[in-house]
Structures are given as structure tokens and as C-alpha cells.
Design a protein around this nucleic acid. Structure first.
Length: 690
DNA sequence: TTTAGGG
DNA sequence: CCCTAAA
């Protein structure tokens, strides 16, 4: 072998043209992305949560918040601020902000909490990796919180809760705005949100209308849609308002329970009738709630939320909350089921109690960015599927996804992205998505309606709120610990197949052009990304999943044969280049997800608009990463030669025309000979010369 | 960074 | 399709 190489060099002196290397910078981007994704996921959750919160708010509209923590307020603030800062520093979550904001806006304490909890739960489920990783900012926030608190790893839930808390606090404290000095967008946004919320709370009885446009959200990402989210919720005042207080703080469990409930109630996260719980809760509730909220918030949107939340929160009574939080977090993490039960116990209030829930009409809301990686050669249809998967993974439900390029709907699912004009090079900014709830599904009540809290909500919010039950995987993850990547892979939720199918055989162009691959991003990846903690450990991302198998098309084979016939069997890099000029970023090596350098991705910042079920619409900024999958000519050739040598009956897969196989054998033989000759000759030459 | 090979 | 040795 070595000899051959040498010979080649000597003879041809040709070296394969150097391939353009992908910038390593990609890595960094990648990591960032992941973070984003994580955030995004959470964001969805958050959305759901928000919805729920809103509902709950309406219901509960508790007044107690303000009263709590008067004396401690100052100290709490400081602490909170610091925390925030820390979190921010550690995490830079852009996306979360909005969520938190939104949530804040919507949720009344209880409602928020619940919602959050639900979301959290869902998230928690999703986050199998949570334990493992560092995924979303939320997580980070959690961590930070934990650290601060000294608690164990809290999770997304916290973030949500925190957000909720913030919201609540914000709402409670009219002066919340001042507390936020932060320059960060998120922080500011939060402030705004809070303010709004506060206002809303004030007006509980009246239906709320928020201009969710939320400055908050907007900041984060460029293309983010400016969603105009207006939430309209008639607030019905239930008894809920009476005490939001949860059981004692000590029972962090309660919180946990709430969260669990949320999680469990994957179905309808949003609509949470707050009243139920709240009614039951003991008075301490305020604190608890706050705590919960804070914790949740932190988890969710560590940076922004925290800040905002903290500030408000701090003013009121942060310190206490922290401690509580920790407890509850831990409990939560350790025993989700248990938590759930507790929740019920605590908040057994029947939805009917008087709890009225608000009918929310969410016009739009923003969700954290969603990062999708997809090969340029993938079809529009596959893109839709991918986006759908990613979104539904978070939101649940089975909405329909549409792709908009420059505001124009791309209808032909069979076109490749390239054909549709969606290329990584440009125009990505113009890419957006629409998501429409499946009417049929929209009506379907969430399965987990058992939770009284959800009863009311069932409607509009529902679809969004629903989170896919990733629980199993998550559970696995938890047990395993952060490092276990496998858990992700195994995740039942994702439908891997859906992603793959994409390429349309009918379009030859595609195949040839992308001889490479259609591979779609496995849903898992998305999840993984989502889950991955911002911070420290990308453990999750590390475990590469096995690539999806994408058999070579006949066209690809033909291109390969042609190239080999011309170039021989030793210059695979050249072969690839020759065979697939179109693929600019091809390398002879197959691409791997986790190897940015090899992967070409196009980041497409998108402002996607999603029309959620019912009247809910949300803007989801989606980042699409496009990449080309390279196949390994070397390997393919190997198999081709083998295939050509075996009987047709033994062959499997897409039949390769005998003609091509014959050429394979022919080329292989001839090049083998040449190589052999080369090997032999040189020595002779040397000898002679010497 | 490419190739060659083996699993 | 993956992994690794070797260059």
C-alpha cells in the first residue's frame, strides 16, 4: 500500500487538489448552536408554560406576592443580582429571554408555576441529558442557581419557574422595571414583560392584552420574527387568588411535584388551571411560589430571567426562595413521580372549584431559536419534516409546517432546498417557516388531563404546550448521568425515519448533485442540542450517532464509476471532487455530525412564524444548518467491487445496472494492474539507475 | 490530511 | 458505515 502511494506520487506526481477545509471556527459555532437549541427547546416549553401561566394568572391573580419578603428584600435583591450576573456570564442565552419574558408576562404566580412545572416536566423528560449536560441556558441557570444555593442540579424546570417567578414578581412589583438595570436585552425585555404583567395583574378582572412583541424576545436573534403576540385572556377570578401559597417551603417537594405534574401532563401544559393548586396551597404560598418561580425561571432563562426575576424577586424575598428552591429541585430531580403526587396532594383543588380559567388567545409568541441541521440536498419536504419534528418535539402535537422563502411559500416538497433557492450561501435570511396546527389534533385534549390543573386549558394553548413524552429517555439519562449519550440516541420520541426519506428519487438532479447525502438530521440531534447544557459539558453532543444509512443511488454510482475510471482507485479525494463537483464542501471523508470541520453547515437564521393551534401563533426563529453529507468513495467502491463479483441474486439494495458493475470491475482491474506495475517498475528503475 | 484496510 | 493505522 505504501508502495503504491509512493509510486503514485512518483509517477503521476499528482496530488489531489487540496480540499478547502472547513474553518474550525465551525466548532465554536456549533457549540453555540447547541446552546441555542437547548434554549430553544426550552423556549417552547416556556411558551407552553407561558400559556399555562397566563391561564393560571387569570385564574389565580394572587395578590400576596407583594407582601412577602419585605425586610429581606434588599438583601435578596443583591443576591439575586449577583446570581443573575453570574448566570449571564456563564450562560448567554439569547433565546430564553423571551420565553422568560413571555412567561412572566402571562403567568400569575401559581399558574406560572404550574405551567412552568409542566413545561419543566416536559422538559425534564426531554432533557434526558439534563443530567449529562449542559444544555440549555436553562440548565445553566439551574446550575448557577444550584451553585448559589448549593443545591443539586436543578433543571430546566427551574428556569421556567424562575421565569415564572420573575413574571410574577414583576407583576407583583410594580417597580420591577427599575430593578433591571441590565443592559442585556433579555433583561430589559424581561423588565418590560414584567411591567406589563404587573399591569395585567393589576387588571386581572379585565382581559389581558399584551403586546407580546416583546422586545424581550426580539433581541436575541436577528431574524426573529417580530411576533406580535397578544394574549387575550379574560381573567376569571377564581378562588385561586386566595392563596397561591404552596405548602411549606420545606417541601421543596411541592414544587417538585408541581413540576412533575407539569411534566407528566405533557399533553396540555399551558392551560393550567391554577386555581386548583392554589386553592389548596397554604399561605406560605407566596413565598413558595416565588421560590418556585425563581427557580424555574433560572432554569429556563438563566440569564435574562434570572436577572429580571431576581431583581423583582429579590426585592421581595429572594433568599428564602433560594434555599427552598434547592430543596425542591433536588427532590424533583430525584423523584419525579413522587413530586407529582405531591402536587396533586397539594393542589387537589378541582378545576371546577371555581377556578375559572382564562381563555387565552395567543396571537403570537416567540420561541427560542431552533437549530436544525439539514443537508443542502435534502428536499423541502424533508426540511419541513425536520422542522416539524424539532418543533413538535418541543411543543408536541402534529402541526403542519410550511416553508417560506422570502415570504413566499415553497410548495414543492420534492424540490431540493437548492432547487428551491434555499442554499446555505444566501437567502437564508429569507427563510421562514409556518406551522399550523393540525385541526384535528388541535381539538384533542391532552392525554394527561388527569391533572386537574389542565382541565381548563385544554384548548388553544394545548397543542403548544404538549410536549412529547421523552420521559423514558430522559429517565435513562438521569440515571446514567451526563455522559451517557446513548440515551439520547435511543430516545423513542424521535422518528428517525422521517428525516431520512427525503430525497426524491424522481429527481435525478438531486441525486447526482448530492450524491452525497440526503441525510437529514436525526431528530435526536436536535434534542441533543437542545438538551446540551450551555456550559461546561457538551457531553451529550459528543456521542455521535451513527449516521443514517443512505444507500448510493444509481446516479451516484455512475458518477463514482466515471471518476474512478478516470482517476483510478487511489485518489479518492480527487474522485470525490470529480464526481461531485456540485458539492462544494465535500471531502473524501464522510461527514460527521460532531465534526464541524468536516461538516458543511449553513446556518440559516430564520425568523419563523408559527401558527400554533387555534389562535395561537408564535414566531420561532429557526436556524437551519445546511450541510452536505459526503460519502466515502473509497468505501463505496469497495462495496461496488464486491457487489460486482457476487451473483445478482446475492445483491441487495437498489440494483445497480450490470453495465455499471461491469465497468467497476473493469476499472478496478485496470487500475489494479497499473498500480501493480507502478510498484514493480520503480524498484527496477531504481536498481537500474543505481 | 489522505489513504488503505479491517471490522 | 465506522475506526484506525500509517504516511
Amino acid at each position: 500500500m505504501v508502495l503504491q502511494k509512493r509510486l503514485d506520487y512518483a509517477c503521476g506526481g499528482y496530488r489531489a487538489p487540496a480540499m478547502p477545509h472547513l474553518p474550525r471556527s465551525a466548532r465554536g459555532k456549533r457549540s453555540a448552536r447547541k446552546k441555542v437549541e437547548d434554549n430553544q427547546t426550552y423556549a417552547f416549553d416556556l411558551l407552553a408554560t407561558i400559556a399555562g401561566k397566563l391561564l393560571s394568572e387569570i385564574k389565580s391573580s394572587p395578590s400576596p406576592c407583594n407582601s412577602t419578603g419585605t425586610s429581606n428584600a434588599a438583601a435578596g435583591r443583591d443576591a439575586a443580582k449577583q446570581e443573575r450576573i453570574d448566570e449571564e456570564k456563564s450562560l448567554k442565552c439569547e433565546g430564553f429571554d423571551w420565553l422568560s419574558c413571555n412567561e412572566a408576562v402571562f403567568s400569575p404566580e401559581n399558574a406560572l408555576e404550574k405551567h412552568i412545572a409542566y413545561k419543566l416536566k416536559e422538559n425534564s423528560n426531554v432533557p434526558k441529558d439534563t443530567s449529562s449536560g449542559p444544555a440549555s441556558p436553562f440548565i445553566k441557570s439551574d446550575l448557577s442557581d444550584e451553585d448559589a444555593i448549593g443545591g443539586d442540579g436543578s433543571r430546566i424546570e427551574h428556569g421556567v419557574g424562575a421565569a415564572a417567578e420573575k413574571c410574577i414578581k414583576g407583576s407583583l412589583s410594580s417597580s420591577s422595571a427599575e430593578s433591571y438595570d441590565r443592559k442585556e436585552d433579555g433583561g430589559k425585555k424581561l423588565l418590560v414583560a414584567e411591567q406589563q404583567v404587573a399591569g395585567n395583574f393589576m387588571d386581572r378582572n379585565a382581559p389581558y392584552k399584551y403586546g407580546l412583541d416583546d422586545p424581550l424576545v426580539m433581541d436575541v436573534k436577528p431574524p426573529l420574527v417580530s411576533s406580535d403576540s397578544s394574549v387575550e385572556a379574560p381573567l376569571y377570578r377564581n378562588n385561586i387568588s386566595r392563596n397561591y401559597s404552596f405548602p411549606n417551603q420545606e417541601d421543596g417537594m411541592d414544587l417538585a411535584a408541581d413540576k412533575d405534574d407539569d411534566e407528566n401532563s405533557s399533553g396540555c401544559t399551558h392551560p393550567t388551571p391554577v386555581a386548583n393548586k392554589t386553592s389548596r396551597m397554604p399561605r406560605i404560598g407566596d413565598r413558595r411560589i416565588r421560590k418556585l418561580m425563581s427557580s424555574k425561571l433560572r432554569k429556563v432563562a438563566p440569564t435574562v430571567l434570572q436577572d429580571a426575576g431576581t431583581s423583582n424577586y429579590d426585592v421581595e424575598q429572594k433568599p428564602a426562595l433560594r434555599g427552598k428552591r434547592m430543596c425542591y429541585t433536588r427532590q424533583r430531580t430525584q423523584r419525579s413521580s413522587f413530586k407529582r403526587r405531591k402536587l396533586f396532594d397539594h393542589c387537589p383543588v378541582s378545576p371546577y372549584d371555581g377556578g375559572i380559567y382564562v381563555k387565552l388567545s395567543i396571537k403570537s409568541f416567540k420561541v427560542p431559536e431552533l437549530v436544525i441541521e439539514i443537508p443542502e440536498t435534502a428536499t423541502v419536504g424533508s426540511l419541513k419534516r425536520t422542522v416539524l419534528e424539532a418543533v413538535t418535539a418541543i411543543l408536541g402535537g402534529r402541526p403542519r409546517v410550511g416553508v417560506l422563502l422570502q415570504g413566499k411559500k415553497v410548495r414543492d416538497d420534492n424540490k431540493t432546498l437548492r432547487q428551491a433557492g434555499i442554499t446555505y450561501g444566501d437567502k437564508l435570511d429569507n427563510l421562514s417557516f409556518t406551522m399550523e396546527a393540525n385541526p384535528e389534533e388541535a381539538l384533542v385534549p391532552p392525554p394527561s388531563s388527569e391533572d386537574p390543573n389542565f382541565l381548563g386549558l385544554a384548548c388553544a394553548a394545548e397543542p403548544l404546550a404538549r410536549m412529547p413524552p421523552i420521559a423514558p429517555a430522559a429517565a435513562a439519562v438521569d440515571q446514567r448521568g451526563p455522559d451517557s449519550t446513548e440515551s439520547v440516541q435511543t430516545c423513542p420520541d424521535v422518528d428517525h425515519d422521517s428525516f431520512h426519506s427525503p430525497i426524491d428519487p424522481s429527481s435525478p438532479e438531486k441525486t447526482t448533485a448530492s450524491a452525497l447525502a440526503l441525510v437529514a438530521v436525526p431528530p435526536m440531534d436536535v434534542e441533543a442540542l437542545v438538551m446540551v447544557p450551555l456550559g461546561n459539558k457538551p457531553k451529550r453532543s459528543e456521542t455521535p450517532q451513527r449516521r443514517v444509512r443512505r444507500p448510493f443511488s444509481v446516479a451516484e454510482v455512475e458518477a463514482l464509476v466515471l471518476a474512478v475510471e478516470k482517476l483510478g482507485t487511489g485518489r479518492w479525494r480527487d474522485v470525490k471532487l470529480r464526481a461531485f463537483e456540485n458539492a462544494k464542501h465535500r471531502t473524501y471523508v464522510d461527514l460527521k455530525w460532531d465534526e464541524p470541520p468536516r461538516v458543511q453547515h449553513c446556518m440559516i437564521p430564520l425568523g419563523s412564524e408559527f401558527k400554533a393551534v387555534g389562535s395561537a401563533a408564535c414566531h420561532v426563529p429557526i436556524v437551519v444548518k445546511m450541510f452536505l453529507f459526503l460519502w466515502r468513495a473509497q468505501d463505496k467502491w469497495k462495496t461496488l467491487v464486491h457487489t460486482a463479483r457476487i451473483s445478482p441474486q446475492q445483491r441487495r439494495g437498489e440494483p445497480v445496472p450490470q453495465e455499471l458493475l461491469d465497468r467497476v470491475l473493469s476499472a478496478h482491474a485496470s487500475w489494479s494492474q497499473k498500480q501493480a506495475k507502478l510498484l514493480l517498475k520503480p524498484p527496477a528503475a531504481l536498481l537500474t539507475s543505481q
